[in-house]
Amino acid sequence: MGELILDRLILRFGRRTVVEDFSLKVADGELVSILGPSGVGKTSILKAVAGLLQPAGGKILLDGRPLIGTAPEKRPAVMVFQKPLLFPFLNVEQNIAFGLRMRRLADSKIRRDIASIMELTRLTGLGRRRIHELSGGQQQRVSLARALVVKPAVLLLDEPLSNLDADLRQQMRDLIHKIQARTRITTLFVTHDQAEALAISHRVALLLEGRLRQVGSPRELFHRPADPEVARFFGGTNFLEGRFEKGALHTQVGVFPLPGFNGNGHRLTATIRPEDIVIRERGPYDLEGRVVRTRFEGMATRVWVQSGNTLLVVLTPDSRLTPGQRVRMHLPPEKIHVFPPPPDERRA
């Protein structure tokens, strides 16, 4: 079992508050990513769960039992750090066995557990290697194996992939995903890489400026961001402001039907992702504009289009567009996401 509850957690360094009122419930066997830019307090949250940082306020509960006040070595939570932090004076097997040896388990059990975890983390055959003989990816796998072998109730992963190159990162991401699916260990995964968080997690908690901004499934955060800042974090650049009247959003650049939305007279902000805007030569269109700039990105081309006084960014497979060219754009109504208006701005 490993249901983890963080309740109104406050973390401070001296007088500086890094995390404020952070609440999150992680179900048993769930993998939740804490996502956010560098320096917002993601690692501090993990350290608080591990017991390496004393919270200034709030509660941490594991299966209903409070963890605050329990020494880190007595908590059933293991942390994997950004750097592998393997013990250089031990070989691979000895590193993996470290936690088991600290628990004074029998040698036969230690050997069995090590063999099984090395197979799971694809380290079989490397047991006698010295740490400096391993590649970066292998070192991080040993670090993961060392944490998993003690069968923690909660696994805390602090950007374990950030020091790896792109290929290894992808491989390790898949490995962590598979291992978590198989072991069902409750996992908190910290990352600043949105693609990583979206690919690996059951749910994502977005932390901006020390505050939790949105928690939800990867699809929810990506397609239904709670506010413009969340949208911006996930690459949202197109924001349309206007008033909702008679089933449509009336903006300076055009009128966009919003079927199923209620609230006449509300001032609203809506967004549409760059890849959801369709540039078309024929057929109905919503907006016209002039190409200002283009950037080829391989699978797609990013195009900046000036329409009235609004600059829209479009991601299109068409790489032939050039600056100065006039284009027509279609904004599918089902792709337009309207942010819930703040309570005090509903009828501006």
């Binding site: 591990a50 390496l52 020494a71 070595e73 750090f81 013990f87 936690g99 944490a147």
Partner: peptide, 16 residues
């Protein structure tokens, strides 16, 4: 040079 971090690793691996 990582000594303190190693101690943190040890703490989370149940070393007293």
């Amino acid at each position: 040079n990582s000594g303190m971090e190693m101690l943190d690793v040890g703490r989370t691996l149940n070393a007293g």
